[in-house]
Amino acid sequence: MSQPSSDHAQDHTDVPSDPALRVKALESLLVEKGLVDPDALDVLVDTYENRVGPRNGAQVVARAWVDPAYKQRLLDDGTEAMAEFGYSGGQGEKLTVVENTSSVHNVIVCTLCSCYPWPVLGLPPTWYKSAAFRSRTVIDPRGVLSELGLELPKDIEVRVWDSNAASRYFVLPERPDGTDSMSEAGLAALVTRDAMIGVAKVASPTAGGVS
């Protein structure tokens, strides 16, 4: 698939034949020109590698499961309720939280690019950005979910949320059975990134997984 790197000087398509080297070269150029402060760059890398990610979203989900008043605030105004944890939409977008129930299943996608709630889920996985997921989820959500291992009964209503520049979406998964006695932290540990995208359910901690 990938082409062997040929004559760089002839290559004006900007397709990096060796992306790592090209990005390094670009970084050095921008630093040398004073356009980028290397310390600021390190802070940003650390942010995206360590400070954002699905553990943030999982905390929010667990709180909503144990605190009905918080859950109501979250569903009424996701932006405000996430701010209670110090999370924002990422670039000023509104955050809308949609709730999965026994009768409604929500799944998020971005058909035009790959909009995603970075602060609470981190950066999206490769499959979320794939042409196949972006194109097919709106026209055949049940087929896509089934391919990803989630079979939904016919009587479940499926809602697809096509994320746009002004709004980012986040799925509040259903609390699994067998978790009544669990602590908030224990619950947060059960919540997966894929359940907050809406392509999976949160598995019950009891043997047998998804109930």
């Binding site: 490769t126 194109s135 097919r136 709106v138 896509v144 391919e147 997966t192 392509v199 999976a200």
Partner: peptide, 14 residues
């Protein structure tokens, strides 16, 4: 690409 078909595999990995 919303609604297109035939754009390959999703390549899902949990």
């Amino acid at each position: 690409m919303g609604g297109m078909q035939g754009l390959g595999e999703i390549g899902y990995k949990e």
